[in-house]
Design a protein around this nucleic acid. Sequence first.
DNA 1: GCAGTCACG
DNA 2: ACGTACGTGACTGCT
Length: 893
Amino acid sequence: MTKKLLLIDGNSLAFRAFYAMYNQLDRMISHKGLHTNALVAFNNFLDQIVDPMQPDLAVVAWDAASGKETFRGDLFPEYKDGRSKTPSEFKEQFPYLREMVALHGLRNYEQAGLEADDIIGTFSRMGEQAGYSVTIITGDQDLTQLATEKVTVNVTKKGVTEIEQYTPSYIMEKFGLKPLQIIEKKALTGDTSDNYPGVTKVGEKTALKLLAEYHDIDNLYAHIDDMKQSKLKENLIKDREAAFCARQLATILTDATLELPLEEIEYRHIDYDKLVLFYEDLDFKQQLAKIKALQKSGQIIGSQTPVEKVINVVTLQEDNLQAVAMLGNKIAVHIEMAGSNYHIDDMIGFVIGSPATGYYGSRDVSLLQRPELRSVIENAAIIKNVFNVKAQLVLFKRLGITLKGAEFDFLLAAYLLDTTDNDNELSTLAQRFDFYVTPDEDIYGKGAKYAVPEETSRVLVHLAHKADVLMQLEKPAFAALQDHEQTHLYTEIELPLAHVLADMEYRGIKIDQTRLRDIGTSLEERINAIKEAIFIEAGEVFNINSPKQLGVLLFEKMGLPVIKKTKTGYSTAVDVLEKLASQAPIVDHILQYRQLAKLKSTYVEGLLSVVHEKDSKIHTRFLQTLTQTGRLSSIDPNLQNIPMRSEAGRQIRTAFVPSQPDWQIFGADYSQIELRVLAHMTGDKNMQQAFLNGEDIHAETARAVFGLDDSTPVDALMRRTAKAVNFGIVYGISDFGLANNLGISRAEAKRFIETYFKEFPQIHEWMTEIKAKAHEQGFVETIAKRRRYLPEISSKNFNLRSFAERTAMNSPIQGSAADIIKIAMIKVAEALQENGMQARMLLQVHDELIFEAPTDEIEELSELITRVMDSAVVLDVPMLVESHSGNTWYDAK
DNA sequence: GCAGTCACG
DNA sequence: ACGTACGTGACTGCT
């Protein structure tokens, strides 16, 4: 293999590093008072860009002097004049930067009379001649003049970890120039930061045009007389001398005499022992944690070994597929996809194997469909470790394969153990157990720059690392689950639920696109009419969607009273506008506009954009490992917030239809599940009795709070108030919140709460106890032992502490309700199967389940689902399930 | 990428 | 005295 020479432009990158984190300057100060922002950014650069390259030779070149003391200063006395002085906060980091470079195994180099550019230029030619492939990294685009077939110049784009690769062909593509013509371009344009002029009025565009015609300035000036008269020609003639001088200044030396021979810049790998001391001195906590994790997982042994534990992956091909039959009955499996939407994103490779038998993989996922592999994947007796079992199930389904025996899902386990900081990334979650895996972002990049490395082995080795870590994580993760008494929650709830959800998502829900488009058309007409009215009332045209513009109109031009402010200006939220509606007709029009605009953009256009063309269905993803309480969430699109409360919005539901003719949509929901959970958990006899009697719970609450006897009717206002108090209780009540919600005084709200607690004394007790418990153990639990940590419960900050206290009261309630419906879903799925029903579960919306079924099956379905749901768990109060069916989701009401 | 707004339970 | 209801996701404007 060709040997690699790495040349780094220390000054320009350090400078970039300093300004990349300039806004953090004041925060990043070590205990010794040293600013560390440039050091942190430079260290990121070394970690992310340099360390993975593992070059054979490497040098970081530094300027020996300002540039004045080089031939450039002799040539042009004003060279680099006018540069502002280097800030002292930056200067003080210089010696540490060099030490950091050395500890990362690279040689620092500077030489009197030379700038870093010239050192790099000369080394690059030496290296090229000695047969090395040369990589230059710099923050200065001028160095691209050094690019050749053997020399690639990487220029930082943003910060210091995003780079743009300049090869001769890329330079041709970007500028239409050969690398050496970069110098000619500079000759014409000059350089303001180095303070030398080129030709007056010639910028990049003109320069590129001239070079396209004349190639270089020698040739340009040779033909200058033929040029037709113009201001440009005059300037060129006038500034001829400046151009030739600029060319000399811009030319990087490639033939300087260096006092350091190539052989002496050997890359020496990272010195971890000393690096730890260095990081400790600078208070680099994250870096220290990373090294600790690497050491613990055996990826660093001693101080001089390379970062990555060596893992061999055998590339699977037609002729060696039988090897997977020998893998044994305990393996890791992983299909990698390009992106996060496993319904549609490309599958870019897979890996299968174990530490004992080695890892096998390929970029070609169709190999999984071969009998040799399929029989392993579909064999439930071969136990698999995976990351995100639901995603893997869907990916395999797309290949027509049923994944069986996936018993350890590290993502699920990690989520149950601690919901906080769950970014759903293996690399981050593994760190909790001190295992290190290269983050996907480091391999593929992110956003627009996402790309699968061309080098197949790089991908497969990355996948094998993931697989290997998944094997190693099983033991500690299961031990931790056991410690939390969460094995039941894991084995009997979350893991089987993942299978149920995978089926639901993969099946999808059918959309009547014509219907949705019609709704869109009529919304558009109504929106346009309202818009016109608004502009007339406003006396001007403005962007109604801009809260800023709207605020100026309402509160400055029209002089309406300011009711609430946001961080950035006037609030124009619904509650504010509703208070203002009586004062100007425009306000009501704005409210209508907002409602309709929301429906059109989010629900008509938004939903249409995610319909899969081949089946006219929407396939959402239920996130099973995101919420802090144990609920699911739904994305791409969110099918848990389809409008319902307003009739105009509710119409959207008419577009959700059964996937087959003569089928219907069926929905079943838990009535008052959270209040029932509350009654159960608190053991409050009065509230339990109300449910046992089958009473209207809000009316009963009203009776209690307002002191009415059984014969007195409860009026609507009392019921509404009581309902709000019930909500408040579930959310972790405060008089302020309740007052705000009901539009009553704080004193009144306080009285309501006091009476409520007197009437339901065990609820009050429980609230006090749960807060104390949260304080003692640092977390609260649901009925299924789902945990939520509340570190801020002991904060001295009133706000943080109060928030944690409300959460301590709310999470066990919301979370237990989530447990219940999850259990119900698993039982429902089993019941449908056992009874040979054709009905299919499609959606979950926190306390309701949506199905589709043949019309003639609905009656049986209704009976079955109701029975399964209301007996899913046994509480001290009955569970009430209500159900509805119809031709569309709208009609299932 | 954040803030504001609004859709749901 | 302090100052907010709990849990989500998508879209728009703006820096």
